[in-house]
């Protein structure tokens, strides 16, 4: 996966709270191989029921602005695949589901946390249109709807997004430590090994 530092693109607002992963991708699509592309599955049922849905009217979207508890619910990483394959690279919201956030970072999608008041201002400013947006990871800022806002981002996550890093590579340098940990753990706590 390749990393990124800055995106300049289009943003839309989805003025809803609690958009859960079951809405982001209905379960029935999750058996598809990733190579098929998951973009069409994004908010599939919601979009099909509402021809006027913002993501039907605008399909060239890089940044999504939305309300609290985005990506709550199931651990399905497919919810992130659907956003990424649709073309979205950053989601701005007051809060995210914890597992969703780490899944996002593992796939190059920025979950940028902003104060609720800023999000409400943005939603009001963007309305039903699309607007230009620039997201800069190096400064943790987003320029959107005539405002410059800064978001919270874990420094490790920033590094991962910028470099497109894969944890497995990072971890392999600890292989010896892991092997030693395993040996010590089961020597001290033999009950921790499954029997039978």
């Amino acid at each position: 996966m390749s990393g990124w530092t800055e995106i300049k693109g289009r943003a839309v607002a989805l003025a809803q709270s609690n958009i859960d992963t079951d809405q982001l991708i209905p379960a029935r699509f999750m058996s598809a191989p990733r190579t098929d592309g998951y973009g069409d599955f994004l908010l599939h049922d919601v979009r099909q029921d509402d021809a006027n849905h913002i993501l039907n009217r605008y399909t060239n979207v890089d940044v999504l602005v939305t309300r609290r508890n985005f990506g709550s619910g199931s651990s399905r990483e497919a919810a992130v695949y659907a956003l990424v394959d649709f073309g979205i690279k950053a989601v701005l919201a007051p809060s995210f589901g914890d597992i969703f956030r780490s899944n996002a970072v593992n796939n190059g999608l920025l979950p940028a946390q902003l104060p609720e008041a800023d999000i409400e201002d943005l939603i009001a400013a963007i309305g039903d249109d699309d607007v230009g947006a620039t997201v800069d990871l190096s400064t943790s800022t987003v320029r959107i709807a005539g405002q410059e806002l800064s978001f919270d981002l874990d420094p490790v996550w920033r590094k991962k997004l910028v470099n497109g890093w894969d944890d497995i590579d990072l971890t392999s340098q600890h292989n010896d430590g892991i092997q030693a940990f395993r040996a010590a753990r089961f020597a001290a706590h033999p009950w921790a090994l499954p029997t039978s």
Binding site: E77, I99, F100, S102, N103, N106, D167, I168, T171
Partner: peptide, 9 residues
């Protein structure tokens, strides 16, 4: 719970 990338890890 963890996501698919973490499961792979």
């Amino acid at each position: 719970g963890v996501g698919a990338t973490e499961v792979a890890h």
